[in-house]
Design a protein around this nucleic acid. Sequence first.
DNA 1: CTTCAACTTGACCATACGGTCAGGAAAAGA
DNA 2: TCTTTTCCTGACCGTATGGTCAAGTTGAAG
Lengths: 213, 213
Amino acid sequence: MPEPANQALRPARRNEIRQQNEALILQAAEKVFAEAGFGGATMQLIADVAGLPKANLHYYFATKEELYRKVVQNIFEIWLHAAESMDNAPGPVEGIGAYIDAKMEISRRHPDGSKVWASEVMHGAPVIQDYLETTLRDWTAGRVALIQGWIDAGQMAAVDPRHLLYLLWAATQHYADFGHQIETLNAGPLTERQWREAKASVKMMILRGIGAV
Amino acid sequence: MPEPANQALRPARRNEIRQQNEALILQAAEKVFAEAGFGGATMQLIADVAGLPKANLHYYFATKEELYRKVVQNIFEIWLHAAESMDNAPGPVEGIGAYIDAKMEISRRHPDGSKVWASEVMHGAPVIQDYLETTLRDWTAGRVALIQGWIDAGQMAAVDPRHLLYLLWAATQHYADFGHQIETLNAGPLTERQWREAKASVKMMILRGIGAV
DNA sequence: CTTCAACTTGACCATACGGTCAGGAAAAGA
DNA sequence: TCTTTTCCTGACCGTATGGTCAAGTTGAAG
């Protein structure tokens, strides 16, 4: 893909305009949806955050739903990518350890995306129900088999693989979804050092919890 | 308190009418706020769910915000009550075990409340920020000390008490907040037996994770 | 330069929402 | 019974929101 990787916004070739504005809008939308929820978000506010007139949003995204759907799909992409980190590992320490690292990094780098995802699922997954029933279900089945293999090989304790996955999701996403609570209790955002401690704590507790260390 | 514990809705003494209708509205509101979020919820829908005319809601609760605030406060009460289960325990196995049981039970019995709470925190705790800074912070400090005591007494591994608390909150609340996802992967609601397994799995993984078993 | 398609945007519209209110019904008190 | 207080509710209102549109501007193609 011969992408110019244009960081600034000068030349603006026809094709780039579209990509640039779509990205700008999606970024603003993710933030606003995360902060206000789908119902509380307004196209006007998203437009203001993006620095574009509202009518321009509707040129690129016909409806609020369509824009929201794109945001959620983007998050799912990131999620799936992180999910790969679990594969090709010789055992649970490496596989689950890498997965925790990847998911903690998402919580740190994309807290808004995580919140939008959480909100979507909490409200009954109105737009990504099909993904849950296909992609996520398949991915989960594969990972359950992987974990069961590690158990059968004596590399970890005989825990229920599904509940382990839930624990992994819960523990890692909590640092994004409940970030405000954590920051309040911490009297400020987590520092670089505190993030390392958080990662290490989660990894240690879970890996020991499944008898892998 | 000489409360008649009136389950049906017959006699309707003056005082009971108020209590009954407020409870009815709060119940409906919790459900609607959980399903649609604050911004997506409408007074009309809450009224329909409660089976009352919309104007009647405004007789008992002046504004949507006031109603929402009451719902969130109710949830916080339940949360605080469950929090007591951790005290007066001889060690982490009993204390944390009981706390996990209590919180899992809340996820099962009050999933809507849990979702409203999660949503509130995700959106920056606009109405319960003061609770986070006072009640929750104090409670957390106390529990951190309690856990540190267990660590110092050699009853569990030297984990960071704060991250343990976050793990407890995350793991248990996940079964309510992401219940829809779990039910989709489970091809249906968790059965009585599956709930027992969930509880046991969470408890086992975490207790072993902190070196208490 | 001309033409055409892609992009931009201020002004506008219909609707849905939170909230109000006046007038009536039903208890409680005297 | 009469009076007072609480409760109930259909009809109404101002506003904010998602979405439309028509008239423009800008970049590409010939």
